Each structure stands twice: as structure tokens, then as C-alpha cells.
Amino acid sequence: MNAPLLEVEGLTKHFGSGPAPVRAVEGVSFAIRPGEVLGLVGESGSGKSTIGRLVLRLLEPTAGAIRFAGEDIARAPERRLKPFRRRAQMVFQDPYASLNPRLRVRDIVGEALDAHSLARGRRRERVGELLELVGLPAAHMTRFPHEFSGGQRQRIGLARALAVEPELIVADEPVSALDVSVQAQALNLMQDLRARLNLAMLFISHDLDVVELMCDRIAVLYLGRVMEIGTAEQVTQRPRHPYTQALLAASPKADPDAPKLTRLLKGDIPSPIAPPSGCVFRTRCPYATPACAEVIPPLRDSGEGGAYACILDSIPERTEAA
């Protein structure tokens, strides 16, 4: 088995100082192997996007290790990060806001080539190749972003990310801003590029259906902590954590004849400034006991290489909503 390309261990990010910082990410650990796609899923405020930015060192971690190809980059000075930035790139959620409206596509895609001194003497040719790789005509390189649809702009963002031939892509909600009619096209393109280029991905989404389609493994996040992690099949077909069960039951693809868990997620996600003691999910969990307020549950082996964070030994797979 290949060694991990990316290893994250005990990753923590607090914003602000003093006695009550915003605890955005708390002790998150995972690994991604070459060519593998790991999905991060959870409600808004769960820390997904923060983790993506930490992995790329767009944010400085408070604690923890980030190892890329065996090298810990968590606290590497900026001057040492240039080689890493060529090997890891990001695709953003908003395909319009992430593109400079004053630049033509040839310069949007080409600036990455310039930054890393690539394709000297054949910049225009290389930009054309990248556009065709993502399904756009090379002749469109002279256009501005506003001349494209949302789906086409996301393809431009992909071409820009792929310009430096990265090994890892962090895709932060890459289809959530697109019309439903073009989401499938964008996802199919990303799957094709992943296979053709042997890309590893950290795929961030609030949509379990999308994550199930795209990912080999899934990590379910709640209030900055991993609640469950495992293969896509394991997490979506045999979930062990109550939070994962509730997310699945709320999915539009949920079995209409099965008992629902959608009403189990009562109220809002707690504030990361004052998270609940013990298990952070206990204030919304239908199975919570007094012990859940006392113990931060470690990840327990669920078989097949998966794990879940719950101190209870028995959790019903399906429960009628109260």
C-alpha cells in the first residue's frame, strides 16, 4: 500500500486569544494516499473549510502536524513553502469571485505558470492545453470571466489549479454555487481528471450524496471534531455515529419508507466559543446520557478501517423521530 501523501495529526485551530477563543478545529487527524479522495462533510460551522485552508497553509495551525510527502509543513516558513504550493492547489466554492474579472483567461491560468517558471516559451500553448483538458475551447483564452457561465468559470478555476501539475487538490464546496443542471457535469469532470492525472483530493461539502459519489473515504465533522471516518460505503450504508445517521436521514435520497431521523437534529450547532463539555454533539443527540457530558469520546474502531467517536456501545441504526 502506498505511503500517505498527506497526513494530518491532531490539527487544531483557535481564532482569537484569551479565555474564550473560537475553537474552529480540535484535534483532527486523517491521511490521504496518492490518487485517493477523502470527503469532509458536516453542517455549516463544522470546520470543513478551515481544515482545507490549514492543509494548504493559508491559515496557521494552533497545534498539530501537517505532513506532505513525509515533510512536516505545519510551521515551515513561507520561503520553504514554494515547492509545496506547486504540489497542492485549491479549487474554490465561488467560481466567479475566485477569478480576477480584469484578467483574460490566458492570464488567469497562465499566472500560475509564471509564478513557478513553467512552460517558458510555450505559455500560450500550455494554457490552451489546460483549457481543453477541462472541456473548454483553447480559443476562449482571450475572453474575460464574465463571458462564461458558472459551470464554465469553475472549469477555468480547475484549469488554473491544474496548471502546475499538482498531486493534491483541495476542493472547497466546488459545485455548491452551480445550478443543479450543471453540478453533475462538474462532478463527472472532476472524477475524470482524478483518474487521468492520479490526483489526490480533499473534497469538502455539506452534501453527503455528492461526497458519497466522489470520495473513497469520508470524515464526518461536527463542531471542529471528527465524529466518524471510514470508507464511503461504510459511512453511508452502515453509519455508527448518531450525527452521521441524522445527516443521512436528512438527505434527499433517504428511503421514503424508512423511519426518519431528520427531527433528531433539533436546534442549531452550538457556538465554537463555548462548545459543550464532553461530547460536543450531546446537546442534540437523542441517545445522550449524563456520562456524555463528562468524557470527550475518542475515536473507536468500527471495523473495515473505520472509526467513530461515541462512548455508547449500542446505537439503533434507525429510530422513529419523536
Results as ranks from 00 to 15, higher is better:
A195I: 12
P174S: 11
F148V: 09
L178D: 01
A195K: 14
A163K: 03
G157L: 00
Q185M: 13
R196V: 11
L178Q: 01
I156W: 00
V175E: 00
L187W: 08
L189T: 10
P145V: 07
P137E: 10
Q183K: 09
S176D: 13
R153S: 03
A163D: 01
G157M: 00
V180C: 10
G151V: 05
E147R: 12
L162K: 00
F144G: 09
Q154N: 04
L168F: 07
A159I: 01
I156C: 00
A171T: 09
R155K: 07
N188V: 15
V180G: 11
V164A: 14
R155I: 01
L189A: 10
S149P: 04
N188P: 05
H140Q: 12
V175R: 02
Q191R: 15
L189C: 11
Q191W: 12
I156R: 00
A171I: 09
R194H: 14
L162M: 07
R194T: 11
Q191M: 15
A163S: 08
E165D: 14
A159S: 07
A186R: 05
N198D: 15
E167M: 14
Q185P: 04
A184K: 13
D172R: 00
A159C: 07
A138C: 04
S181L: 08
A195S: 15
L197E: 05
A184P: 01
P166I: 04
P137L: 05
N198G: 14
V164S: 14
R160I: 01
V180M: 13
A161D: 02
A177C: 08
F144A: 12
R153Q: 06
A159H: 04
H146M: 06
M141W: 12
R160L: 08
L158C: 10
I156Y: 00
V164D: 09
G150D: 07
L189W: 11
D179P: 05
A139W: 12
D172C: 00
L168C: 05
A177W: 01
L158Y: 06
Q152C: 10
P174Q: 07
L187V: 15
A161T: 01
M190C: 01
F148K: 05
R143M: 12
N198K: 14
A184Y: 09
D172N: 02
G157P: 03
G157Y: 02
L178V: 12
H146K: 09
E173D: 03
Q191P: 11
D172Q: 03
E147G: 10
L168G: 02
A171H: 04
R196E: 14
T142S: 13
Q185N: 14
D179R: 08
R155G: 03
Q154Y: 02
P137M: 08
V182P: 03
V175N: 00
H146P: 12
Q154C: 02
L197Q: 07
A177M: 14
N188F: 14
Q154A: 01
N198Y: 10
L158I: 15
V175K: 02
R194V: 08
G150R: 04
D172E: 00
A186E: 08
L187R: 08
V175S: 06
A138I: 02
G151H: 06
S181C: 10
P166R: 01
H140N: 11
V182G: 04
L168H: 05
Q185K: 13
V170C: 04
L187H: 09
V175P: 00
A171K: 02
G150T: 09
S149C: 07
Q152S: 11
M141S: 15
N198H: 15
Q191V: 14
E167I: 12
F144I: 08
A159Q: 06
I156L: 00
